[in-house]
Structures are given as C-alpha cells and as structure tokens.
C-alpha cells in the first residue's frame, strides 16, 4: 500500500471541509496520443493492456500508475527495457522491427508468468502494402491466382 501526498491532501480537507466529487472508475482505453505513442499502464502488479499490437515504428510508453516500483525487461536479449520505473514515471521504447516481444517485471513476475506482457509488432503499413503489391505482381507474372492485399 503506497500513497502520495496524503498529508497535503488531508490538510486541504481540514481547511476546506469538503473534497472534490469522486470520479467514477473508468476503463483504461488503449489510446494513441498526438505524438503517435501507444500507452501501456502499469498497476500493482500487472500491465494494462497485457497484450498490445502495434505497427512497426510505434513507440510504446509504459507509465507506472501503481504504488510500487516496477520495471520492464525483455524475456530475451537486451533490445529494450529499463530496470526501474518509479510511481508516476514512464519509460518509452520505439519498436521498429516486426516481431513478438515478451516482457515482464522482475520485481513481480518472470517471463510469461506473474506480471508480464507482450508487444506484437506488425509490419508498417507502407511496407506491408509494398510487399503485398510485389506479391500480386509476382502472381500475375506467373499467371496464377494469389493472395491479395486487404488494403487495411
């Protein structure tokens, strides 16, 4: 159990006698900020969302909304990660290469157990479209029927 600023908050209560009205609980939507960053929240002791799919070139920003320290460590290798994220602090990493990136908090988890998460990076849209068109051309050149680009 951790808290921040309780003394100050209660002093305010003592002075004012009332508190701001409570805010109902909100789901945590996955959102894309104006800077194109995708947010993952860290609570005690889980990541939210636990699994996230993004296009290559996306930056993931982990924000510690919990009361305890957490971290982000890759299941394998050292291509990203940070050893400590204090409450309210953030960590960002840009994922440029398609793939599946498992990660965990070493304080409260281990690879694929306890507090862990996954970032699935898909090909960037332009790259994907280019490859789909190339495949289509190749198919047409061979006179056969091949896969089509979905265009999404």
């Amino acid at each position: 159990m951790r808290a921040r600023g309780l003394a100050g908050a209660l002093a305010l209560v003592a002075t004012a006698g009332v508190l701001a009205p409570s805010t109902p609980g909100l789901a945590a939507p996955l959102h894309f900020g104006p800077d194109g960053v995708v947010d993952v929240k860290i609570d005690d002791n889980f990541y939210r969302p636990k699994k996230i799919k993004v296009r290559a070139g996306t930056t993931i920003r982990w924000t510690n909304d919990g009361r305890n320290e957490h971290n982000v460590l890759p299941d394998t290798g050292k291509r990203f990660g940070v050893g400590e994220i204090d409450p309210d602090a953030t960590y960002e990493h840009r994922f440029d290469k398609p793939g599946r990136y498992g990660y965990y908090c070493s304080f409260h988890g281990a690879p694929r157990t306890g507090q862990f998460g996954t970032v699935v990076v898909k090909r960037a849209r332009a790259e994907r479209d280019t490859q789909a068109k190339k495949a289509e051309r190749d198919t047409q050149a061979k006179g056969g029927r091949g896969a089509r680009s979905s265009g999404t």
């Binding site: 808290a3 600023g5 908050a9 701001a20 009205p21 805010t23 609980g25 909100l26 909304d65």
Partner: peptide, 15 residues
C-alpha cells in the same frame, strides 16, 4: 480512503 484527494490526477481514482 479518499483516492480523489490522494490521487486527484488519476482518472480512475475513487473514494
């Protein structure tokens, strides 16, 4: 436990 007083900047805070 008044979270809106303690963590008023957090959208999920509740009392």
């Amino acid at each position: 436990l008044p979270e809106t007083a303690l963590y008023g900047d957090e959208p999920e805070a509740r009392d």
